[in-house]
Nucleic acid binder design. Structure first.
Lengths: 98, 98
DNA sequence: TTAATAGTTCAAAAATATTTGAACTATTTT
DNA sequence: AAAATAGTTCAAATATTTTTGAACTATTAA
C-alpha cells in the first residue's frame, strides 16, 4: 500500500503507458519488435509497418517516453528494443497491483 | 499463430481495451471496483471518484463496451463489476500473447 | 566535397476523445 | 398523483492526439 501522492504519480505513469499502447501503429511496432527479438533500426521497423519517417519518429519518441522501448544511437541509425521490465511491471502485473 | 484478418480483429479489440484503460478517471473507477470487490451501483462509484453523472455515464459505457466491466440493471440502479477475464486475457497475458 | 541516408523538428490541419448542461426515461417514494 | 432518484442522450464546446510536408542536423559513402 502506498500513500496518496505516490499513488497519483503511479497512476500518471500507468495512464501514460496505456496511452502509448492504445494505438494500432504502436501495437504493430511492439509486436514487430517482440518477434524480431534483437536490436533493429527505427527505419527498418518503420518500413515493416509501413509508416512515414515523420510518423515513425513521433511514435518511437512516444514509446520511449513511456519507457516501453530502449534506444541507442549508432552512427546515423537509432536502434530500438523493447523494455520488457516496463511491460512486466505496468502491463502484466497491472491487475494484480492495483 | 493466427491469420492476418483475425490478427487485425484481435488488434482492434486490444487497442480498444488499452484506450479504455488510458484515462485517469477510468483507472480510478477500475481501482475502486477492484477494491470494492462486490457489485456496486454506478452512482456510488461516481460519488467515490467525484465525477458528474453525465461523465460517469460516458465512462461506464466505454468500459462496458471494451468488455472491462459487466453491468446489471436492478430497479433504478445499474450495478457494475469488473470483468476479470478481460483483464486476464488482454492485459495480464498481453505481452506473452503478442 | 558533394550525394545520399537516417532521423528530428516544427507548425498547421485533421481526427478523436472528453466535458458540459439541459432535457429526457424509468422507477421508486411520499 | 407528484416529487425524487438513477441513469441516459444529445449536441455544442473544448481538449488532446495524430498526420502531414517542408526544412533541418548529423553522419557516411562516392
Amino acid at each position: 500500500m502506498v500513500n496518496t501522492k505516490l499513488r497519483k504519480q503511479i497512476d500518471e505513469k500507468q495512464v501514460k503507458i496505456f496511452k502509448a499502447l492504445a494505438d494500432p501503429i504502436r501495437l504493430e511496432i511492439i509486436e514487430y519488435l517482440k518477434h524480431t527479438d534483437h536490436e533493429i533500426a527505427c527505419g527498418e521497423v518503420g518500413k515493416a509497418v509501413n509508416i512515414s519517417k515523420t510518423s515513425g519518429s513521433y511514435h518511437f519518441k512516444l514509446l520511449e517516453s513511456a519507457g516501453l522501448i530502449n534506444t541507442r544511437w549508432e552512427a546515423r541509425e537509432k536502434y530500438v528494443t523493447l523494455n520488457e521490465s516496463t511491460f512486466d511491471k505496468y502491463v502484466t502485473d497491472f491487475y494484480q497491483n492495483i
